[in-house]
Simulated scan of single mutants.
Amino acid sequence: MTPPDIFDRNLRRLRRDRAAPDYPAHDFLRAAMLDGIAERLASVTRTFSDTLDLGCFDGSFRPPPGGRTVRSDPGAAFARMAGGIQHDEDQPAFPNASFDLIISAGTLDTVSDLPGALALARRALRPDGLFMAAFTGGASLSTLRAVLREAEGERPAARVHPQVDVRSAGDLLMRAGFALPVADVETLTVRYRDIWSLFRDLRGMAATNLLPGTPTLRRDTLARAAQAFAALADSDGRTNERFDIVFLTGWAPDESQPKPARRGSATSSLAEALKRRD
C-alpha cells in the first residue's frame, strides 16, 4: 500500500509556477545554497561530464565547464525557463548510471518521499559519482512558527513544514546507499520589518505551506500573528527570522574509494595509548 503524500503535489507545482515570473527578487536563500555547494565543489579535484540540476528553479546553477547538463523541476514554468523537463524528484525519470554529478538546491525539503528521492539520485549516479544537495531544515522559520502558534491559541494548525535536522539528513544519505556521507548545517538570519515582508519572500521563493488540508488563516489570527511578530522587533524595528540550510554530500560507491578500517585491525589498544599519556 502506497503511503499518503506528505505534501500536496499539485499545489507544489502551482506554487512554483506562481513564483517563477518574479523569482529573482526572492532567490536569496537558494543563492546562499548555491554558494555553499560551489564552495564544497571547488575542493573536488576531478572533472564531470554529465550533470543533473535536480529542482533547477530558473537554471541559475552554473555547472562545471566542459560537460552536459540536464535540468529538471517539479514546476512547468521553471522547467521551461531553464530549458529542462518537469519531474518530481521522488518519481523515476532517469536511467541508472546517467550522471556523474547531481546537484539539488532548495527543493528536497518539500518532497513527499525524501528517502525515495535520495535513492533515485543514488541510482542515477555512475560509480564514484557525486551528489550534493542543500535545503532548509533544522530550526528554520522558528519565529514564524512561534507567532502563529501564539496567534491560534489552544489548537494551532500545522502551518510550517516539518523540518529535517542535520543528523537525520546524514542517516538518510546512508540509508540511500551513498558512500562517504557528509551532512552539515549553516544558519542564515534575515531581518524583516514586518510579517508581511516574510510572507512575500516565502511566496516568492515557492516556500509557502504545502501540507494537505490546512485550514485558511482567519483575518483576526493573521492580525494577532503580525502583532506578535512586531513585538519581537529590535531597536531598528526589524524582527529576525532563521533559516537553517542543511548541506548533503555523498558518493556513489566505487572500489577506488577509501574504505573504513576493518573492525579489530588496530595494532595497539586504547588502554595502552592511555597508559602512555600518564
Rank of each mutant, 00 (worst) to 15 (best):
D53R: 08
L210D: 10
S256C: 11
G59Q: 12
W251A: 02
A183L: 02
S49T: 14
A151D: 10
Q257K: 01
P3R: 07
S60G: 03
P24C: 04
Y192L: 08
E152K: 04
G138Y: 04
F48S: 09
A38P: 07
Y192V: 08
M1K: 06
R238I: 11
F99T: 13
A207I: 02
P3Q: 08
P212H: 10
A119R: 13
L274N: 09
L188Q: 15
A158L: 12
P212V: 09
A82P: 03
A31D: 15
H87I: 08
L52Q: 11
L41H: 06
M132L: 15
V111K: 01
P260I: 02
F57P: 00
L173H: 06
P74A: 12
R68S: 11
L210A: 04
A134R: 05
A146D: 09
L34Q: 12
L180V: 01
A42T: 08
L270Q: 14
R15V: 00
D194M: 06
R175C: 02
N10Q: 11
L130A: 10
F57D: 05
E89S: 05
L248R: 15
D27T: 04
A233N: 09
R68Y: 06
I102N: 11
F94L: 06
A169W: 02
S235R: 14
S98K: 06
F57E: 06
L11P: 01
T2C: 05
M81L: 14
M33D: 15
